[in-house]
Amino acid sequence: MRTNLSLLLLLAILMALVPSVLQGGYFVNVAIVVCIYVVLAASLDLVMGWTGMYSFAHAAFLGVGAYTAAILGRDLGTSFWINLPAGTLVAGLFGLLLGLPSLRAQGHFLAIMTIAFQTVVYLILAQWTDFTGGQYGISIDPIEGFGSLSAYFYLVLGVTVVALIVIRLLTGSRFGDALRAVRDDETLARTIGMNTNAIKLIAFAISSSLAGAAGVLSAYHIRGVTPDDYTVMTSASIVTMVVLGGRGRFWGPILGAALLVLLPELLSGLADYKHIFFGALLIAVIIVAPQGLAGTLAQRRAK
């Protein structure tokens, strides 16, 4: 636990050097996107890796957080400092909503439901033009005092570190034990006195609220929201990051997110075929190394 957190802080300090070492906005932009996807992948892993439930709707919560910030800003003129907690909270409430069916349906049924949920959220964002701006979306003003890109990057990095510490503490606590227990054997978990329904709901709520926070951060980064950023394709990208990195391990989703954001940037030809590549990668990882990079590395070391 201690070493993980120390390593995390060290990494954050290194990241913080990006704006001064690598000149130019491009690198800072990439670093911001890495941070946002790290939060997304790590939060999805709470549900998918630790609790063993399938959710293909993480981008929906990203969208709910982003649109909450955009709509509040547009209609009430609220600032980022209100919109961030509001987006987190509203996404968490939507997470509870999606968590409810998880109490009854499991495995593939839950997976189907999450895809349906993802699509409903997208259709609402795209079609409820009066409220969401339809395909044109809503634009967002920069945050006062964080107008410069590097200042905003430090803000995003700070939120990312806080989110990761929360996840690390959660999974290292009794709550983490409970998640693993639900994943291993839900009936047994109940029989030893665990309220598994509450555990599953809370897991969904925390996971989606963190995705909502990431949504607010990304909305302020690209200065606006449009529905096409929150499709099932985005959900699939996050799933691929988690699976590639390694489910149910602290460093797994962090590694997966960093790799899959950086790879299309490094190989310029790949960007066009990103989703094809992600889909193929998802299948390949499941066949070759279902435990992901982190899981395979840990196994190597154990031997």
Binding site: H108, A236, Y273, G279
Partner: peptide, 20 residues
């Protein structure tokens, strides 16, 4: 190995085909 992983792989296949 693990039938539940089929869920994830076929989701990947769906994404792959859509983009192809």
């Amino acid at each position: 190995h693990d039938p539940t992983n089929v869920i994830i792989a076929s989701f990947g296949l769906s994404i792959l085909l859509q983009n192809v």
